[in-house]
């Protein structure tokens, strides 16, 4: 059995990562799951959270994804992400500013559609902030 698997991270706009990795941890809707080579066939939805790419037993890279789908088979793990940002690119101050802005829009919103959209955006920003907090604790 090979000791690496092909990891692919795709957003609707482009292919973000395609590389051989030892292990990835994916934030599934029903809990995080680690993928090693030879994993059973699986299709799962993803909640907003962090994808962790392992190499040499250590985390090599952390990426935030805003949700999406993952498909796993013995030699490949494909993640279809709605939005993906490398964790170091997230900025707490900037995010908090954005959150305030959206909250203001939410309060000024006229119809339900707009309110729902604002709530969704807020949820994503919340998840980003949580991810930052979790990473800082490591």
């Amino acid at each position: 059995m090979a000791n690496t698997l092909q990891f692919e991270l795709v957003s609707p706009e482009r292919l973000l990562r395609s590389e051989q990795v030892e292990m990835v941890v994916v934030p599934g809707t029903e809990g995080n799951f680690g993928v090693l080579p030879g994993h059973a066939l699986l299709i799962s939805t993803i909640r907003p959270g962090l994808i962790e790419i392992y190499e040499g037993g250590k985390v090599k890279e952390r990426l935030f994804i805003a949700g999406g789908f993952a498909e796993v088979n013995p030699e490949r793990c494909t993640v279809l992400a709605d939005e993906a940002v490398p964790l170091p690119d997230l900025n707490r101050a900037l995010l908090e500013g954005e959150a305030r802005e959206i909250e203001a829009r939410l309060n000024a919103a006229q119809d339900d559609d707009e309110r729902n959209m604002c709530r969704r955006q807020l949820a994503v920003i919340d998840a980003k902030l949580t991810a930052l907090g979790a990473a800082a604790a490591h």
Binding site: L41, L42, S44, T45, F69
Partner: peptide, 25 residues
């Protein structure tokens, strides 16, 4: 030849999320 996929959550629910997404794609 590969066998059957596991679904998490169950397949119908995934499909309900996947299809609107696919429409957008």
């Amino acid at each position: 030849s590969r066998g059957v996929y596991d679904f998490e959550p169950e397949d119908g629910q995934i499909l309900n999320e996947l299809l609107p997404r696919n429409l957008a794609v």
